[in-house]
Design a protein around this nucleic acid. Structure first.
Length: 390
DNA sequence: CGAATTTGACCGGCGC
DNA sequence: GCGCCGGTCAAATTCG
């Protein structure tokens, strides 16, 4: 049997796993991966595939494959890996147990036990890395909540005098609670009526997306550059009061009318951590990456140590965001409908790893895929390419 | 030589 | 009203 992988470019910062031979899980740990498999085995298991909702049942596949009775020449599997914290999962073992011909890249070469062990070791290593990433997300998430005063409890333990901290909080609230954000006001003693005053200018409830991306860099690197696939023009640099490292201001240089801005600054706590704050959404397509170039998030993740996840604070409250679509859009698991919890690290970690988070992620990704004309076009081309053989 | 970056000046919001 | 601060502008400088 021949398997064709088809990877779909949703554009950065989505991390779509390309069919890396012998490293089928590489991107799984850094964000989320999507692979499209085209099989020429029987579709008698297609129903099972649908029922399994994105999970790969190797046994049923094998049965259908070995049976060799084809009802339909092409079967499509959409596999979504999104288990950022799970230890080596059943799915991974399934993949390892799979017949060699079913592995990534259409590689029909058998994988030896040694290779399987290497893969397992990598799985463990990457899993550990991902656990650390989850903790960082949780810290950032908690920090954002604390700075916004959404926790209703004590201020974050920052060594600043109360008046200065108050000024800073006000600034950050402006920055992140733009437009119709009633939540933060509510939690600071105001009420939902404030939302209307924010929307008074045009009568609509405008949302300006604000997201943060952390990237680990060499501490000696002073470039303040966070590669994300877009072109940026630097228009200013400033040393801020609460951080000895300068903050760089960038505008999107791809389209003159693009409103997106980016601020990049080293973390005050960890100089090897670069924090990029994005404001607004791109109003143009993502610049196409060069051939063979991974999306920025994936590429950087491959280099190790980067964090292709972001914490977003928008008008509906704090969200944990895995940026998966272009134009600044994002898959978001919004907790704003509930009273904001205290920034408890364990709780946030549990949220990120929860089935609800994963389910929402899968749904958003599926939605993004099916609504993307590039994806449907590529899918049609891949299927058509296969059909003449029958 | 044009484009990109740097950097000091300026502006506006906010707290006092 | 004043001073602080973050954000932006624009002339000067650097780079390819």
């Amino acid at each position: 049997m021949q398997i064709k992988y088809h990877t779909v470019s949703l554009s950065p910062p989505i991390c779509i796993a390309p069919p890396i031979p012998h490293e089928p899980f590489k991107c799984l740990y850094n964000c989320t991966w999507l692979c499209l498999f085209l099989f020429d085995y029987s579709s008698s298991r297609a129903q099972q595939q649908r029922d399994a909702s994105c999970s790969w049942s190797s046994s049923s596949m094998d049965a259908a494959w070995r049976g060799g009775v084809g009802c339909s020449p092409v079967c499509l599997d959409l596999c979504v890996g999104l288990s950022p914290v799970r230890e080596p999962s059943a799915a991974r073992h399934e993949l390892l147990d799979r017949p060699a011909g079913c592995r990534g890249g259409g590689d029909s070469k058998a994988i030896t036990n040694d290779e399987a062990k290497i893969l397992e070791a990598k799985v463990t290593q990457m899993s550990e890395e991902n656990r650390r990433l989850t903790e960082v997300i949780a810290r950032l998430y908690g920090g954002q909540i604390a700075r916004l005063g959404l926790d209703g409890s004590a201020s974050p333990p920052r060594p600043v005098s109360p008046p200065l901290a108050g000024r800073k909080r006000s600034r950050e609230s402006m920055e992140t609670a733009n437009s119709c954000d009633a939540n933060s006001n509510r939690h600071q003693g105001g009420d939902a009526d404030h939302a209307e005053s924010f929307a008074a200018d045009d009568g609509t409830c405008r949302r300006i997306k604000v997201s943060r991306v952390c990237r680990r860099i060499d501490p000696s690197d002073t470039s303040l550059v966070v590669k994300d696939g877009y072109q940026w023009r630097k228009y200013g640099q400033k040393v801020t009061r609460d951080n000895p490292s300068p903050r760089a201001y960038f505008r999107c240089a791809f389209a003159p009318s693009c409103p997106v801005k980016k601020k990049v600054q080293r973390s005050a706590e960890d100089s090897s951590l670069l924090v990029a704050t994005y404001e607004g959404e791109h109003n143009h397509p993502h610049p196409s990456p060069r051939a063979g170039e991974l999306p920025a998030a994936a590429a950087a993740a491959g280099a190790g140590g980067s964090l292709p996840c972001s914490i977003s604070i928008n008008s509906s409250g704090p969200t944990i965001t895995l940026d998966l679509t272009k134009n600044g859009g994002a898959v978001q698991v919004v907790e704003a409908a509930h009273p904001p919890p205290p920034p408890d690290l364990k709780e946030v970690c549990r949220e990120v790893a929860s089935p609800e988070f994963r389910t929402a992620l899968v749904e958003q990704m599926a939605s993004a895929l099916t609504s993307d004309p590039k994806f449907t076009g590529a899918l049609a081309a891949a299927i058509l390419q296969k059909l003449p053989e029958f």
